[in-house]
Design a protein around this nucleic acid. Sequence first.
DNA 1: TATTGTTATACTCTATAACTATA
DNA 2: TATAGTTATAGAGTATAACAATA
Lengths: 173, 173
Amino acid sequence: MSNNVTTTEKGPARSRAATRSAATPPAGEIGLGMLPELIGYHVRLAQMAVFADFERSLGTLDLSPGLFGLLVIIEANPGLRQIQLAAAARLDRSTLVPALDKLEARGLVERRAAPDDRRSNGLFLTRPGAGLLQRAKAIVRDHEQRIAGALSAEERAVLVRCLDRLAPEVRES
Amino acid sequence: MSNNVTTTEKGPARSRAATRSAATPPAGEIGLGMLPELIGYHVRLAQMAVFADFERSLGTLDLSPGLFGLLVIIEANPGLRQIQLAAAARLDRSTLVPALDKLEARGLVERRAAPDDRRSNGLFLTRPGAGLLQRAKAIVRDHEQRIAGALSAEERAVLVRCLDRLAPEVRES
DNA sequence: TATTGTTATACTCTATAACTATA
DNA sequence: TATAGTTATAGAGTATAACAATA
């Protein structure tokens, strides 16, 4: 099996690549080789497209996808310690610090000294933080409908189940 | 509808969150709020897991996923111009320069002055570059089997088709 | 004037290692 | 000794703006 130069496998033999070995491949006919056969390639493109919409949507509130995720987790777990939040968000604890600094500087999140262990901080949403998050969640639900609008509820469920089954060995964490 | 603190929606009311407002949520019970309802969340986790395996696999050859993709596209389109490669790889042309510098410094890729337009370079794999790419492709095929091994051929096809239908509006490029 | 490749620069996200204050 | 948070630092990966050579 040789590589496809174009995406189509069959069809009449085009003018051979060798015929124009030093020439420029015509625009619009640039092949991607084996890349479209790789699931990771499609996952990456989907990620880029979904995140572009996500970022543009939340940009209204000056929130990144990452900061939004932190707010959601803090809301679901009031009093969470930084190290626990880092684990839940799959970040290093040092990565979390500047992110929380931003949220705290904007008055959305509060670090309260933990009563039982003075090394730790308990994390809480402030009232403005909770309010902003409610608006953000509404925006994110709109985003979700926009990006997945072409898929039925069943297709979405299948998609998520397939995604969750990818690279199981890497996920033992 | 209030937010779920844990992932489970129903079930007997647990000790109220208010009861331990300043306490630490027990480890292993950290909820993720609405995040698991978002397709983008699962896409991102899958991306991270797949890329981790991809990077580890190709690391053997000191190749990143990005550099591998460039080699594949050049192989499929000998003589490609940098601006065309940038478009195919969805990179800015300025981003491509240091990547090609790396590949050229390792003797894997050659920039040849284009005969018809002296502003442009035609890109070609060297013989060692083509050889390395063959080995890389074999590694990547193994990687593909490893990450998608839990999915049938049909499931993989469904997954890819669903992924390609996400965020269609953002993809008009 | 417009385009190709390049350079300088900067921004985001992330991690590692070392420090501090507690435990 | 070990852990929670912090700091300093660095490395990918990406982009924008400006420049030289060429069209």
